[in-house]
């Protein structure tokens, strides 16, 4: 009898930790999302309001704006990161001391804290003493003195830039891994069959990278959906609410406005989007593995 229950007993600590840190908060926030809970007035959540919080979200312009900002942000940052990562991985694929050195220093942006990246870029784009803003201004006089982060479109572009800068190295490594698994013979065969270098890339190498590109894209999408750090340290969501992402909006509602019920509902919207994409990701991953086994 002892042997039968012993393995389960060993699992209990892990189970308790997961329950306390993940499942309980998740369930609690789910329930909270259907209740009213204004932290400035109530210690505990009060009445159930059904889908009230969710209805509130759908009709609120600030939520719609944050959703729209998130979509634009995710789309541009994923696309740019992927294209750059693929191009860089093709360049860095060859062996040589220079390639190895570049591969090593390439990891540096990824080693930086996203919050610090936001602060650094904020400084670099300061119109009076920022190295990038002043540098651009002296090369192109028309760009002199532009208040970069005060313009909604430019602020968004810089937010995307910081994220692309942060994530491209890691995604490049993923693509390099994918490239390494492509048999050299297929490229050589294509060259002999009469393909130009461009067609070898386009018709032979890239199609074989399809799996890794897809996985990279989905992972990057999930990461981009959570964009929060640079919004806080670079733009503060501004100018106005033009760079407020969904994650930042949830934070604002919860910890600035202290409307916990509404914030929980918003958080669950974000969670559902991520669960949907993660599900898709896992499915593709499993199919890839099956293809390899085959």
């Amino acid at each position: 009898m002892r042997d039968r229950y012993f393995p389960y007993a060993l699992l209990v600590p892990a189970f308790v930790i997961v329950l306390a840190t993940t499942i309980y908060p998740l369930a609690y926030s789910f329930i909270t999302s259907f209740r009213e809970w204004d932290l400035t007035r109530q210690r505990r959540p009060s009445d159930f309001v059904g889908f009230g919080n969710y209805q509130h979200a759908i009709t609120e312009a600030a939520f719609q704006s944050s959703l729209w900002v998130t979509i634009i942000f995710v789309f541009t940052s994923v696309l740019l990161t992927l294209v750059l990562a693929i191009l860089l991985s093709l360049l860095l694929r060859r062996q040589g001391p220079l390639h190895t050195f570049t591969r090593i220093i390439l990891i540096l942006p990824f080693a930086m804290s996203p919050a610090l990246i936001g602060v650094s870029y904020r400084f670099m784009f300061n119109p009076e003493f920022g190295v990038i803003a002043v540098g651009l201004g002296s090369i192109f006089p028309t760009l002199k003195g532009i208040p970069w982060l005060a313009n909604p479109n430019l602020a968004m572009a810089i937010l995307v830039l910081t994220d692309v800068w942060h994530w491209t190295p890691y995604m490049t490594f993923m693509c390099l891994g994918g490239l390494a698994s492509i048999p050299r013979e297929t490229e050589e065969a294509a060259k002999i069959d009469g393909a130009s270098s461009f067609r070898v890339m386009w018709e032979i190498v890239l199609p074989q990278m399809k799996g890794v590109i897809l996985i990279t894209a989905i992972l990057k999408t999930i990461f981009a959906l959570k964009m929060f750090d640079q919004v806080v340290t670079l733009t503060g969501g501004g100018p106005g609410i033009s760079t407020e992402t969904l994650a930042y909006f949830v934070f604002k509602v919860g910890f600035k406005w202290f409307d916990m019920g509404y914030a929980s509902a918003l958080a669950w919207v974000l969670t559902l989007i991520m669960i949907f994409i993660s599900f898709w990701y896992v499915r593709i991953l499993l199919n890839e593995n099956r293809a390899i086994i085959k």
Partner: peptide, 20 residues
């Protein structure tokens, strides 16, 4: 001359087939 201009065909040890 690059391989494509040499008018040759080659069979590889691991076949070198295009998997996609």
């Amino acid at each position: 001359k690059p391989p494509k201009d040499r008018d040759i065909a080659m069979v590889f040890q691991n076949y070198g087939l295009y998997p996609h």
